[in-house]
Design a protein around this nucleic acid. Structure first.
Lengths: 190, 190
DNA sequence: AACGGAACGCTAGCGCTGCTAGGATTGCTG
DNA sequence: CAGCAATCCTAGCAGCGCTAGCGTTCCGTT
């Protein structure tokens, strides 16, 4: 009876360990360093155990991404809540978004550039992803003007995403970063 | 005398074959299908031959990317030249950029998401890349207002890049695509 | 014209990847 | 206590990018 309960608990715990190990390893050394062998060594189990929890490496990355969605949503919500004005909120939330991407590049990649087996523009979007998007939408609502809010939000999001990815891959010079962000925010706040 | 000339010619030809094969294969089946073995089979030489031309697979991808820069620059130039007005030019060039990315996703990836061993924000930017950027800059000059032109261009570029990447990875719904592009262009044309 | 040497392209193989089949061990159940 | 079921490990597969080392072919020189 309680034995089964304990085993399920241990199993859930181990699943968390896997995701945590993947996350930490990715943050420290990038996703190319996250191999199933290293992951297995990290949790002190053999490789095949991973596959009794996840369909494959992509699914593990997806799990890390889902964690990231929650973090990002929280960061955006905090930035919006503490903003002095609706206009300032746009700038603050944008800055929070960029800061998140810069501080956790590997997680950002898992969320928005790599793993594709996550549902996005469908019904079954991960709740925390929807929450983050909603935060963004509420933030820009006052400046959306006549544009459809969802479309407007997606476009603003794309701008942020473009800045983040181009800069981190070295396509944009590091300086000027704040200026570009300011231009983006300004153009979407008029 | 002429023997050496012939060999150099053949060698150059073979190098072109490699890049072409890589490009075609990537376009047809994506970069994950482009392996050094398949590439070698395609050009009907053995694998190690590739390494006498390029430092590695990344260098081959970089060569494909450089070809892409020329194509993109041409497409942007054509769109700008045939635009009815400066304002319309912004929309047309943006549409041309997006169309390029959609029609040649693999090449776009090599140019802007994958290969990193290309110089970007330095002195030795590939000429065709600089040309493409210059086209973009000239296009948006009339609408840049007081913003620094280079910064403004980079930001607009980021917006386009964000739209392109998020949509192709399934993060944005396919419909709405034209609307989002319209919003972006509108916001950067005011 | 014959030879020494360099350039060339091949076969074979290394260490790594994600992933899986099969068996041994463990622990619960009747 | 016997039998069964779940669990986890060892071993291995096919594929990856890349390279060492050998055999051949062709060139320049005596």
């Amino acid at each position: 009876m309680s034995t089964q309960g304990r085993r399920e608990r241990e199993r859930a715990e181990r699943e968390r360990d896997i995701v945590t190990a993947a996350r930490d390893l990715a943050l420290a050394e990038g996703w190319e360093a996250v191999t199933t062998r290293r992951l297995a060594a990290e949790i002190e189990y053999s490789q095949p155990v991973l596959y009794s929890h996840f369909k494959g490496k992509d699914a593990i990355m997806a799990a890390v991404a889902v964690e990231g969605f929650a973090e990002l949503a929280n960061a955006l919500a905090a930035a919006r809540a503490s903003a002095a004005s609706p206009r300032q909120a746009v700038a603050d939330v944008a800055a929070a978004y960029v800061a998140f991407a810069e501080q956790r590049p590997a997680i950002y990649d898992a969320m928005f550039t790599l793993a594709v087996d996550l549902p996005f523009a469908t019904q079954e979007v991960p709740p925390d992803l929807a929450r983050g998007f909603a935060e963004l939408a509420e933030t820009v609502r006052p400046v959306a003007g006549n544009d459809d809010l969802e479309t407007f939000t997606e476009t603003f999001w794309s701008g942020l995403h473009g800045l983040v990815t181009l800069m981190r891959s070295g396509r944009l010079r590091r300086p000027g970063h704040d200026h570009r962000l300011a231009v983006l925010v300004d153009r979407f706040s008029r």
